[in-house]
């Protein structure tokens, strides 16, 4: 099953490489990874998505927790949560295609953020599934370049991941 694990860790040199190293060392896969400082500049928040059965996920969270730099973590997929990913796509958009793509962007509530005579740059935000669906709708033939931010997430309701 796909999981979103959110990690609060020391914003210190080497901490990111310890997390990434753990995954390759123990043969766990990382689907996506995002990391940035938080409002408390001594802390970074790292969000990663991974796939595994319950046993594997349990081992992953235990081993992450063992890293000295990791302060706290939560498996967001265990409860209600909000998941967002940002995607920028450069597509061919000429002639009749232009209107077609524009419609598609509207349906997915995306934005066209740059335009030339023959292409658009589109920004879409949402769950990874939604982003996948948009790519499918636009079709490989017109896609020139795709860049995705990786997943960020936060628990719904009162639950807070902080010190």
């Amino acid at each position: 099953m796909r999981r979103i694990i959110s990690v609060l860790m020391e914003n210190a040199p080497g901490s990111l490489s310890r997390v990434v190293g753990l995954f390759s060392q123990r043969g766990y896969n990382i689907e996506s990874l995002t990391v940035a400082p938080t409002e408390d500049e001594t802390l970074s928040r790292l969000t990663l998505t991974t796939i595994g059965d319950d046993h594997k996920i349990e081992q992953i969270t235990k081993h992450l927790n063992k890293l000295i730099d990791v302060v706290k973590l939560v498996d967001l997929t265990e409860g209600a949560h909000i998941e967002r990913e940002v995607m920028l796509i450069k597509v061919k958009a000429a002639g009749a295609q232009r209107a077609e793509i524009k419609r598609c962007v509207d349906i997915f509530r995306g934005q066209i953020v740059d335009v030339t005579a023959s292409l658009y740059i589109i920004q879409i935000t949402g769950t990874s599934d939604k982003l996948d669906a948009f790519l499918q709708a636009v079709g490989d033939a017109s896609i020139l370049e795709v860049v995705r931010s990786g997943v960020s997430g936060i628990a719904r309701g009162e639950k807070v991941l902080s010190l």
């Binding site: 040199p13 080497g14 490489s17 310890r18 190293g21 060392q25 000295i68």
Partner: peptide
């Protein structure tokens, strides 16, 4: 050294 030893230490400091 911090990099090479990373998978075989409990922790490391530079």
């Amino acid at each position: 050294m911090v990099g090479i030893s990373r998978p075989i230490v409990k922790h490391s400091f530079m």
